[in-house]
Simulated scan of single mutants.
Amino acid sequence: MTPNPLAKSRRLSRALVDLRDKAGYGQTELARRSGVKPSVISRLESPGEPGRRPNILFVRKLLDALDVPRGSAEFVQIEQFAEAAADRRWWDEPRFARMGEGQKTFALVELGATGIDEYAAGLLPGLVQTAAYARHRILAGHGDDVVAAVAGRLGRQQQLATQGTTYRLVLEEQAVRRYPVPPGVMLDQLRHLLALADEPGYSVRVVPVDAKLGDGPAPRAPFAQMAYPGDDPSIVIVDGVTDPHLVTSVDEVAEYAQLHQRLREAALSDKDSVAFIKQVAKSLAAAT
């Protein structure tokens, strides 16, 4: 499976900070010894923007200045972190250039995920949208190029299927009952959702409006938690009105994981959720 660039970038940053602290250098001193500008060192130690990619040459210079022997297991591992973080991505192709920066962030955190736990409130999320549903929602949105944005959503879905990612979706009832697209489009979308629910590795659950959520905070926005292989840390992406927000703190990620689990427990079972969606689709079909 392709490693997640953002997760590797975070591990790269942590490794560089630990090595610099161990050597007793400040960023200015490390810049003097390595020939790498302090601003570059600061960016490498703080990944910042999700789309930022490390310069592998600078990473090697820092490792040399920190007395990490070339060819050692430590040097090779950190070099691999940098290479994975800088690797080319499928959305670098020209046809995806205008698919939207927010969607590129979603694609980035989804890349290489072994499991995705997602929660959606009023709208169905991009990973389950049909092309027609996506097109209508993009046209109602923030001006992204429609063709590129639809292609981006379908590309993310293909990425999910190719990776064999386990996907557990929890939907509020209104996401199924509400019609933010024409009725015929919504009917096809519900049928598509039912087909996905029948796929191995997919789980779709619906939270009724009268569900008892139990103790703890209630969700304030749609979110998804990504789990990655090995020691790569999990990431949560929270869907905002305009741009998504990444949560990387271990404690905060754990809180979102607990929230998703409580929502799953409050929701209808997979079987009952499918029956619910079928009934909504049946009623919609009769009315159209």
Rank of each mutant, 00 (worst) to 15 (best):
A85M: 09
G71H: 14
P69T: 05
L66F: 05
F58W: 07
P54W: 04
P47Y: 03
Q80P: 11
P69Q: 09
S39D: 08
E49P: 02
V68C: 02
F75G: 12
N55D: 06
E74L: 15
S42D: 14
A82K: 03
I56C: 05
L44W: 01
E79L: 13
R60K: 02
L57T: 10
S42L: 13
A86H: 07
L66M: 06
A65F: 03
R60T: 01
S46E: 08
K61L: 12
P50H: 04
R52T: 00
R60I: 00
G48D: 01
A65M: 09
I41S: 13
N55W: 01
L57N: 07
F58S: 13
R70F: 10
P69S: 09
F75S: 07
S39A: 15
A84H: 15
E74Q: 15
A84F: 08
I41K: 14
V40S: 09
L57Y: 03
Q77H: 09
E49R: 10
F81Q: 08
I41W: 06
V68R: 07
G51F: 02
A82W: 04
K61C: 03
F75C: 04
S39G: 13
I78W: 14
S39C: 10
P47Q: 00
R70T: 02
R53V: 01
R53E: 00
A65V: 00
R43L: 10
L57E: 02
L62M: 04
G51L: 08
L62R: 11
G71K: 14
L66A: 04
D67G: 01
L57H: 13
A86Q: 09
F81A: 10
V40K: 10
A85L: 12
K61R: 13
P50Y: 06
L63Y: 12
A73S: 14
A82C: 13
R60V: 00
P47G: 02
Q80L: 11
S39N: 10
L57R: 09
I56D: 02
D64P: 00
N55S: 07
A65N: 05
L66W: 03
V40D: 08
A84R: 10
L44G: 02
I56E: 08
I78S: 06
S42C: 11
I56Q: 07
L57W: 10
E74M: 11
A82D: 04
F58H: 11
A73F: 14
L44D: 02
L63P: 06
N55H: 07
A82L: 09
G71C: 11
V68S: 02
L62N: 10
V68N: 08
A85N: 00
A82I: 14
R53I: 03
P69V: 11
G48R: 12
A85Y: 04
I41N: 15
V59N: 04
A86G: 01
E49N: 09
V59P: 06
S46Y: 10
L66H: 05
E74I: 15
A84L: 05
G48A: 09
L57A: 12
R70W: 12
R70D: 05
I78E: 00
Q80F: 04
